[in-house]
């Protein structure tokens, strides 16, 4: 089977493919969200230590995972755009940043609202919390730097450098709970150990994470389409869109 993958590196063909795929990812996100919330609130049992407060986990862990994962994906595409001068890769990187920043904010927010009843503090200058806050600043820095540069290709390159330098923060966030003595609990899920929680709790968390994935993909595809139109508005293929379904 030979598929010409290079075809989809062109913004025009990506535009049409993404337009079809957004619906599938949106529907998957909605279905998984409902299933995940149902399991999280109605199937998963009460935690013996934290009571019902632990139910924040079903939003906190998925958004925190996504905040880190999206940063790596953003830096990857920004780096590809920088190295190979592919327009579409840089557009995808730019499209990821707002969603990633939103998830980072939510990770901090839900963490604070979980920390208050459990630790007695909304915020502590703990290694995990501080490095996650730095992640938020990296996303904001990436977006403001790109917004400050008028020429989109130069903005792509400048953004790629900040994104790539910031990648060093991701392992720091992830391993912070092992490297430093922190208030934050250790990893909830690990490949080498069997899960430390009830199956229903784990299932709810994983389904909510999948929902966050599907949501992110849908939003990123949609935003990439908008960026493509904004940047390529003077090309003939965009002009020809008039009258066709878009």
């Amino acid at each position: 089977m030979s598929i010409n993958w290079y075809k989809y590196a062109s913004p025009a063909s990506f535009y049409f493919l993404a337009g079809k795929m957004i619906w599938y990812f949106s529907i998957a996100a909605a279905v998984l969200l409902i299933a995940g919330l149902y399991i999280g609130f109605f199937v998963a049992p009460t935690d013996f230590q934290q009571g019902e407060a632990y139910r924040i986990i079903f939003i906190h862990v998925p958004v925190a995972w996504m905040s880190m994962f999206l940063y790596v994906v953003m830096a990857f595409w920004a780096g590809i755009g920088l190295a190979f001068n592919t327009r579409l890769s840089s557009m995808v990187a730019t499209a990821i940043a707002p969603t990633g920043a939103m998830f980072t904010f939510l990770a901090l927010w839900t963490g604070a609202w979980w920390g208050k009843p459990m630790w007695g503090a909304w915020w502590v200058w703990d290694a995990r919390l501080t490095s996650e806050l730095i992640l938020l600043f990296l996303y904001i820095g990436f977006m403001s730097l790109q917004a400050a540069i008028d020429d989109p290709r130069r903005a792509d390159k400048a953004g790629a450098i900040i994104a790539l330098v910031g990648v060093v923060n991701i392992p720091i966030i992830y391993f912070s709970v092992q490297w430093w003595n922190t208030l934050h609990q250790g990893a909830s899920v690990s490949i080498t150990q069997s899960p430390k929680m009830a199956t229903a709790m784990l299932a709810g968390m994983l389904i909510m994470s999948l929902a966050a994935w599907m949501y992110s993909i849908a939003m990123i595809l949609k935003r990439t389409r908008a960026i493509i139109l904004e940047r390529e508005r003077h090309t003939t293929w965009v002009a020809e869109l008039k009258g066709t379904k878009r």
């Binding site: 958004v63 839900t110 609202w113 009843p117």
Partner: peptide, 13 residues
Amino acid sequence: GYGFYVWGSYLVS
């Protein structure tokens, strides 16, 4: 008893 914190996180999300 944790309604304020649980719903505070979910509402903002």
